[in-house]
Amino acid sequence: MTVAIIDYGSGNLHSAAKAFERAARGMNVPEKIVVTRDPEVVFRADRVVLPGVGAFADCRKGLDALDGMVEAMTETVRDKARPFFGICVGMQLMATRGKEHVVTDGLDWIGGDVVKITPNEENLKIPHMGWNTLDMVREHPVLERLPLGPKGLHAYFVHSFHLAATSEADVLARADYGGPVTAMVGKDTAIGTQFHPEKSQRFGLALISNFLKWKP
């Protein structure tokens, strides 16, 4: 089984790859974690991971610069129904559009725009940077056996924008930061987290393990 982590020049792939390797080691069927810029590898992969940090438009540009990558992702995830995990801006790219500084097209797998968060408490800073709990909106296999809610485990966030999904059915979890922030989305065989599982210690590794076990 191969997990392709897409390297499009955005973000800290080293930690993402290491976290997936660590999670895979604890499993019966060892997964091969491959960091790649090659659409062919993504096309043949059993699971696809799209990390990402930085600005939406830059990330989209970086992804488009890899000839054939968006097509390979679309075929693998949408047509062949392979599990997909978008992280941070990688999750935001699943949206219809990004509205960070400029309007940029996303992959449009999840209906909605990526918009600035607007905490309604004066003392809350932007970026939303640090640890927050998650409130489950919809049950999902990747959230199985993970303690969520106000007394549950925490996830590590660093972001100023979030995915405002058009359909409530696509939202799996929210965080509260002076109002609701989309923390996790899911549709068909694709999921995405605004937070960084690769930086969320035990909780993050448990979530990645669930993703690697997930057979949609």
């Binding site: 080293h14 930690s15 290491k18 590590y156 960084h196």
Partner: peptide
């Protein structure tokens, strides 16, 4: 930094 990132999944 590299060895820390391999062992610690925190910011």
């Amino acid at each position: 930094v590299r060895r820390t990132a391999e062992a610690c999944f925190m910011p």
